[in-house]
């Protein structure tokens, strides 16, 4: 029964992704579908997931990506000092020129993640396809990773939780951050924020495989000038920012 169920879900997921892909962004979506792994196959080290964020297309008042992230991952969406925020909108004003920029900020999925280096139990880890995650079964809640992260990407769950999403287990006393929508990526889909940004008509977030020279994201990174945040630290982040 549940085999059938998961087959059905997968079919619906894939076919809706196909429809969305055909109507919205053929190149990117079809490419991603080609990488959808069969069930039971582990993530591949041939892939390095990443994002290219075009800050010139990111609208300052828009927070569709944040809302989509909260919905996908079952986050309450509060913005208090103890609330979890996996993705946030940052507003920048150039101190010299006054130029204003808006961009989404989240885990940068470093190739050399400081959070993974400092984690005493190995709960912070990097998956072979470049996604940095927390194994909450091992996380003891010491928060050293939060101290070590140069991007302040991580949140600590300060309260007991209820009604979590089945695909996104999360709970009190552990640290969490953007998972690059790993549950969607494993189904061969794009991330919730990228999808929402596209739906809102901005197309500021491009998600894809940095290792594949023919992927949309690789092509674009070759064409346009993009930077990586705090590149001086040499962390080789998976997120690239354009127009900054």
């Amino acid at each position: 029964m549940s085999d059938m169920d998961s087959d059905r879900r997968q079919f619906i997921g894939r076919s809706s992704a196909l429809v969305a892909g055909l109507t919205l962004a053929p190149g990117m979506m079809l490419y991603d579908l080609a990488h959808g792994r069969p069930v039971g196959e582990p993530a591949s080290s041939k892939v390095r997931w990443g994002m290219l964020i075009d800050t010139t297309k990111c609208e300052s008042g828009c927070d569709e990506c944040v809302k989509a992230c909260n919905k996908e991952n079952g986050l309450p969406g509060g913005t208090g000092p103890t609330d979890e925020q996996w993705i946030r909108k940052v507003q920048l004003t150039d101190l010299k020129t006054g130029k204003k920029t808006s961009l989404p900020m989240m885990c940068q999925h470093c190739a050399e993640p400081p959070c993974v280096d400092v984690c005493p139990t190995g709960a912070s880890f990097k998956r072979v396809d470049g996604i940095v995650l927390v194994d909450r079964h091992l996380c003891i809640g010491c928060r050293y990773c939060m101290m070590a992260c140069p991007y302040k990407a991580r949140s600590f769950v300060h309260e007991p939780l209820h009604d979590q999403k089945p695909d996104v287990p999360r709970g009190k006393g552990t640290v969490e951050s953007c998972t690059l929508c790993v549950q969607r990526v494993d189904r061969g889909e794009t991330t919730a924020c990228a999808e929402a940004c596209e739906k809102a008509g901005h197309k500021a977030i491009l998600f894809g495989d940095l290792n594949d020279p023919d992927s949309e994201i690789s092509k674009r990174i070759r064409q346009v000038a993009s930077i990586r945040l705090r590149d001086d630290l040499g962390l080789d982040t998976g997120l690239h920012y354009e127009g900054l």
Partner: peptide, 13 residues
């Protein structure tokens, strides 16, 4: 994180 910019966000940046 963004030297040379004035920064604001919902996450205390």
């Amino acid at each position: 994180i963004f030297p040379g910019y004035e920064v604001s966000s919902t996450f205390g940046d």
